[in-house]
């Protein structure tokens, strides 16, 4: 899989070359092997899903991509270069944004302020310029606010712009978190269970937003999700993990027919 030409999806979207490649990743916590020798790639413009039963190591995988964990073994190639061990904020600056399984927003701050924090990696003004405010810092703030407003418009959260996040219902908080990640204008967007705990209507909304983000901004998306219906509908290619190992990789149809995957989900008599 070293080609850079990409492929065309079932609905006619052109997917680009490899944006990120994980090579033989292993992650150990003491004696526990969370991830065991996994390799896969993420291509430009695609929606890539990671699925698997509980404890399969999906979130750990996402944490490796986002730089929160450093793999014990293996290499991570991003945009054609090997990525050295990095701090999460350095990874964020490289254009990788994420949302969290259990929402991590600033509850006391308004939606607008929360989404503005997503622009942090794009802000250059230093503390003195901030203190003077007029001039560089203000111009920068305005430019960033404009970007943020476009995201707010895109995700249709205008009505809650000034509402403290703590007062919002769960489904909306998830959307605000997506907004914050999008505000960073990432090249890869990592979504950790974006639909967990949502009702059908909220799931439909979220799915539409994910597809729209991919379609409008061309953002590459890597998501973890438990709802099989959603995964199979949304994603272009799926990685299946079980007990830290990769047991399947391919289009939703291929994965659905894979015997190992069926066994992992339905169980096999021992």
């Amino acid at each position: 899989m070293k080609d850079t030409e990409g492929y065309t999806t079932a609905d006619g979207r052109q997917i680009g070359g490899v944006l990120m490649e994980l090579r033989n990743i292993t992650l150990r916590f003491g004696g526990v092997v969370a991830i065991n020798d996994i390799s896969f790639d993420i291509r430009e413009g695609e929606i890539r899903a990671i699925i698997g039963p509980n404890g399969a190591g999906k979130s750990s995988m996402l944490n490796i991509i986002s730089g929160f964990y450093t793999p014990s073994e293996g290499e991570l190639w991003y945009q054609g270069a090997k990525r050295p061990p990095m701090k999460p904020y350095e990874v964020a600056r490289m254009g990788i944004a994420r949302t969290f399984q259990n929402i991590a927003l600033f509850e006391g701050m308004t939606v607008l302020d929360n989404v503005m924090t997503g622009r942090l990696t794009h802000m250059k003004a230093n503390v003195f310029q901030q203190a003077i405010w007029k001039g560089f810092a203000q111009d920068e703030e305005l430019a960033n606010r404009e970007k943020v407003e476009r995201v707010i418009d895109f995700l249709e959260i205008q009505a809650i712009r000034k509402t403290p996040v703590g007062r919002l219902p769960y489904g909306l908080k998830k959307r605000v978190e997506l907004a914050r990640a999008l505000a960073a204008e990432p090249s890869i967007l990592l979504l950790d269970e974006p639909m967990a705990g949502m009702n059908v209507e909220e799931k439909e909304d979220m799915s539409r937003f994910i597809l729209d983000v991919n379609d409008e901004f061309g953002t590459t998306i890597c998501l973890i999700e438990h709802d099989m219906g959603v995964v199979m509908d949304l994603s272009d290619r799926v990685v299946v993990m079980d007990y830290g190992k990769k047991i399947g990789d391919g289009t939703p149809d291929e994965v659905r027919g894979n015997q190992d995957v069926i066994d992992a989900y339905l169980g096999v008599p021992h």
Binding site: L112, R145, E146, E149, R150, I152, D153, Q158, R161
Partner: peptide, 10 residues
């Protein structure tokens, strides 16, 4: 002013 519309927060 003939028209105003709130968009992008202003």
């Amino acid at each position: 002013p003939a028209y105003r519309e709130k968009e992008f927060g202003i």
